[in-house]
Design a protein around this nucleic acid. Structure first.
Lengths: 343, 343
DNA sequence: TCTCACATCCAAAGCGATTTGGGAAGATAG
DNA sequence: CTATCTTCCCAAATCGCTTTGGATGTGAGA
């Protein structure tokens, strides 16, 4: 059932039917109602491709997912973020389009997307410092919102980010206030901007108390469970073992806990752990009582907000780019306690 | 740069340029080459929406992701599966379209997708037994491939699935052969078809050895870490504690391990664990040496295959639906050992 | 020389919507 | 009663591509 068939059936022109359904004023309210009923009855839905060709708008938002051919890591937070964004898109009549792209030709992927006209805007994931994507997208005129900020970027742009620096400063301060002085940092890959901010939060908390963080207690890598286990084991076995950890993801924190318990130590008593928690739906931090003390911010909620900002931008291209800094909340769980006195 | 501009620039008609680029024979090879070069030079890419309106094909595949409004669980395996499928799509010039949909109106979502013409086919996730989606999709004529089989479905349909029954039979047999007689089953939600098959594999292995599985040692739920921890703890504390577990996901297995170690027991010695492993990229089962004994099958690979089957179906609508049963391999890790002798 | 096949190209009609620029009828004003 | 406005509708152009149905020119065969 297409527009022509529907209009024939109603004895109206396609023009009138189109206007009736799209809420234009130059159509009689009785007629509009008649059209509406018929559309519902015959389950008429405008053909999206035709509509977007006519309007010049795709009614779709793109997410370019870099697929590293080397490590094959699909970042688990994508799922929740896109689910959140997708809720917003759906509520506004937009589709979600994914582009899986080998990470070395991500840039040309954006050009292609623009030329093919399949989306009205894109979300940038995995922001790096001095990220070349910003210039590119401005050059080709594709609206975008970044999940994360890029230090080194001078022009204004739309973004949604968590206060990573603040979250890690707070987490670290919390441990320092409990008396811990040797704190291990299991950071994410520091090619990513968020990881740099987290590290600087970690360092700022130390600086504020004039404690020097130990370089040997810092690691930076993809945030797997094994990574948490391996690095925590290594640090705990070193000459100056940490009494606490700040960890960049709940998955890695599971590994840290394993390392701790493997050594016969008790988490929350012998060794404390604070982790960052993206509030992934399938990885809840305990049921009612949180297991880990954590700085938490829902990445799904970030997705919802990013989606809304982008859609607003598309509907209103001239406004200045909106930004939104989310604060992570500190959730105190059972994984932290005062620094055990020496000996 | 659109087709008309490019053809004007070349002094050719749009017809010829279109044909040249699409490999039709009725164009001189010299001309074709000239067109190709110009297209490349001016970075011409056909407008996807226009192209699909003209051809009647969307060059896109849809994935309908049910978003449970109650539990907000985004199944973590979606990410890897879609990444795999997306690789195939991209390689064949297809886009990936996601539809986030409240799970109670998933059915109408398919109708809408069909009417809007935004995809050429869909992948069905989370197959249940007697799943109504099969009839619906056949009725509206939207090609589909299912990730998982639906018992109760009589008509032929295309699917990709893991031999879940076989995998669990094998995992269970492995434990029985090690002398274990009380084995806990931590299954996924048994509203899902795959979970039913897994359970029947579990039971078949018992039946083959004339061992009766204990109802109190079976659980079925969303596969979170906490679930693994809670249920394993409960079972281990019960009157007749299991000496081994068969677990439906690596995430839950992490929880099981935690429960074991929490009780001062050693996994692989006091209590054995075999888990199903979807080979999620961010949740590797150890580095070089597998931590868990597992039946493993890459869900990403399943996605790749499903994508290919679907695209073949779209290109070749008349062929009988292809199916593909993947076997899970048994990987022996450190989490299993002979049943400790009583006392 | 004429015919026919073949190679090569193009004009125009589509795909299914939106949107521009009227046009007819009825209401209002003069 | 005529002129002007509204109100309500429609025909046709448009978006950017593909595809049908010729048109033209060339060389081979008779």
């Amino acid at each position: 059932m297409n527009l022509k068939q529907l209009s024939d059936m109603l004895g109206l022109s396609p023009t009138t039917v189109s206007r009736a359904l799209n809420g234009y004023p130059e159509v009689n309210e009785d007629t509009r109602e008649r059209v509406r009923l018929a559309a519902q009855r015959y389950d008429y839905k405008p053909h999206a491709r035709a509509q977007s060709l006519a309007t010049g708008r795709a009614f779709a938002i793109g997410h370019v997912i870099p697929i590293s051919t080397h490590q094959f890591v699909v970042n688990p937070i994508f799922g929740d973020f896109i689910a959140g964004a997708g809720e917003t898109y759906a509520a506004n009549g937009y589709e979600t389009v994914l582009s899986m792209v080998a990470d070395d030709d991500e840039l040309s992927a954006y050009r292609q997307i623009k030329a093919r006209g399949s989306v009205d805007g894109v979300v940038i994931h995995g922001v790096k410092s001095n990220d070349p994507r910003f210039d590119l997208l401005r050059e080709i005129g594709l609206p975008f919102v970044a999940h994360g900020r890029s230090s080194g970027e001078t022009e204004p742009y739309a973004w949604v980010d968590v206060n990573n620096q603040g979250a890690f400063e707070r987490a670290t301060s919390f441990l320092l206030d409990l008396g811990h002085r040797k704190i291990g940092l299991l950071n994410g890959p520091e090619s990513m901007d968020f990881a740099l901010r987290r590290r600087s939060g970690f360092e700022a908390a130390h600086a504020a108390r004039e404690v020097a963080p130990l370089a040997s207690l810092m690691a930076s890598q993809e945030m797997t469970e094994t990574y948490g286990y391996r690095e925590a084991s290594r640090m705990l076995a070193s000459d100056s073992p940490p009494t606490a950890f700040v960890v960049s993801s709940l998955i890695s924190a599971l590994g840290v806990r394993r390392a701790i318990e493997r050594l016969g130590l008790r988490m929350g008593q012998d060794v404390s752990v604070v982790t960052y928690d993206d509030a992934l739906s399938y990885l809840p931090n305990g049921d009612d009582v949180p297991v880990f003390t954590a700085t938490r911010s829902s990445v799904r909620e970030a997705g919802r907000i990013a989606g809304q900002i982008l859609i607003d931008m598309i509907n209103n291209p001239s406004t200045t780019p909106k930004t939104r800094l989310l604060e992570a909340e500190l959730v105190v769980g059972q994984s932290t306690g005062p620094c055990p006195t020496l000996g």
